[in-house]
């Protein structure tokens, strides 16, 4: 099993020969079929995409294009029915449930449209959660979570619960939670979908800062102006990649 390989270099050597050595996400002919009451729905019909370290990629597409399915695959929340997927050298397309959970914990930081914070827990505790599942001790957890919250500018809101925070602040907590375990990628699913335009801009600003700091970010959205913040855009249509291009920066 790939996950047993200890160093990143060893894992990278197992990748297909034609991919760059700093590839973070590699999919080859990735397929996903759903059985909807006897009728087979082909959500992904062979997706080949390579995302390198420190890229900021937006995945776009109308609803039904397969972008959510692709996001679930990349986020290791679902397994493909065909093709292969490597994440940071791990061949995750063949991992079992609990191994996927470990990959999600260590390699991926999720940011959701609806924030998905635990309502009864403080901001600090929410950010600590991935570290809890990583088995890190209480002291180190608090230190790392505090650092992550400071990074997103919420050091003074650590002990507030989500319902005492504004939407933008909640999403910042979620970003801090995504960052706290030093993941390979941050996977943001419509992160501004529930925010007004001013707050959206703030959050996108935050993503750009993280990108500038070397973070790999994958953003799923259907809004062109949000996708424009990313350096590269991948457009999906009917389960295939329709377009894959670099964003032209207007500035």
């Amino acid at each position: 099993m790939n996950a047993a390989l200890s160093t990143t270099a060893e894992r990278m050597a197992m990748l297909p020969p034609d991919v760059p050595r700093d590839a973070m996400i590699v999919t080859r002919n990735l397929q996903r079929e759903y059985d909807m009451g006897g009728e087979v729905v082909r959500a992904l019909r062979g997706v080949d995409v390579t995302i390198r370290r420190n890229e900021f990629v937006a995945i776009m597409g109308p609803s039904g294009s397969g972008k959510s399915t692709l996001m679930n695959m990349i986020g290791c929340l679902d397994s493909p029915t065909g093709g292969e997927y490597w994440l940071n050298g791990f061949r995750v397309s063949e991992l079992a449930d609990d191994e996927l959970a470990r990959i999600r914990n260590k390699e991926i930081g999720f940011v959701f449209q609806t924030f998905n914070l635990l309502p009864r827990a403080t901001a600090l505790h929410n950010v600590e959660l991935p570290l809890v599942y990583a088995g890190i001790g209480a002291k180190a957890r608090v230190a790392k979570a505090t650092e992550a919250l400071r990074k997103v500018g919420l050091a003074d809101r650590m002990h507030h619960r989500p319902n005492e925070l504004s939407g933008g602040q909640r999403q910042r907590v979620a970003v801090a939670r995504a960052l706290v375990n030093d993941p390979s990628i941050i996977l943001a699913d419509e992160p501004t979908g529930n925010l007004d335009s001013a707050t959206s801009a703030e959050i996108m600003q935050l993503f750009e800062e993280l990108y500038a700091g070397g973070q790999t970010i994958v953003l799923v959205t259907h809004e062109h102006d949000i996708a424009a913040h990313a350096a590269r855009q991948v457009h999906l249509l009917d389960g295939r990649i329709e377009q894959d291009f670099l964003t032209e920066k207007s500035s």
Binding site: A101, R104, K106, L117, Y133
Partner: peptide, 16 residues
């Protein structure tokens, strides 16, 4: 259910 989903996304195993 949502909370369980979040915990799983953040790395909780079935055992957790």
């Amino acid at each position: 259910t949502r909370e369980i989903g979040v915990r799983k996304a953040l790395g909780a195993t079935r055992g957790n």
